[in-house]
């Protein structure tokens, strides 16, 4: 009796994905993983870290969401087309920073003023390059993951 009423109350998008325990733990930890990924990106010029591992950590946070909740809830917020768009913006930012160097005549010259070392906004364009690489790597790999996950599922769902 109880189980039947429980089943009737459950909305259809909540039945996808894994069990309640996994969903609760994923809801609690995904924010922390995203914060850690952002931290790794932003400290790339101060300590070990950088755009590559930070981008992959952010991708892993989104993959965690997809694995726990199914692919439907995330597709409204971050579909594959938008992920590819953000990745393209990332590599465009990197290329734009490299073209800034042409102002003073040399490709990839660091024209942004370098501040004091050991500060967050120091070392010229390295921080901004890290952000661009993070967007490119993270969203590109997430687009690959979405393409792999939706490979068999999407056509029969659209019917």
């Amino acid at each position: 009796m109880n189980r039947q009423s429980y089943k009737r109350d459950v909305r259809p998008e909540q039945t996808a994905g894994m069990t309640l325990i996994v969903k609760t733990v994923a809801r609690l930890t995904v924010g922390l993983i995203l914060i850690f990924g952002t931290y790794v990106v932003f400290e790339g010029h101060l300590s070990s870290g950088g755009g590559f591992p930070g981008g992959v950590i952010i991708t892993l946070a989104f993959i965690n969401l997809v694995l726990a909740f199914g692919w439907k809830p995330l597709m409204g917020k971050l579909p594959r087309r938008r992920a590819v768009l953000i990745g393209s913006l990332g590599i465009s930012l990197f290329l734009l920073l490299s073209l800034f160097g042409l102002i003073s005549g040399v490709f990839f010259k660091n024209v942004i003023p370098r501040g004091e070392a050991f500060n967050l906004f120091s070392a010229g364009h390295i921080l901004y390059c890290n952000i661009g690489i993070c967007l490119n790597v993270g969203m590109g790999l997430f687009a690959i993951f979405l393409a792999l996950i939706l490979f068999r599922i999407e056509p029969e769902d659209g019917a």
Partner: peptide, 20 residues
């Protein structure tokens, strides 16, 4: 090597897509 690792992941993903 730090660039080679990420390139390796991308090429492996492409290989897996072709295999599927």
């Amino acid at each position: 090597v730090i660039t080679s690792i990420v390139i390796g992941l991308a090429t492996k993903a492409l290989l897996i897509c072709l295999a599927m």
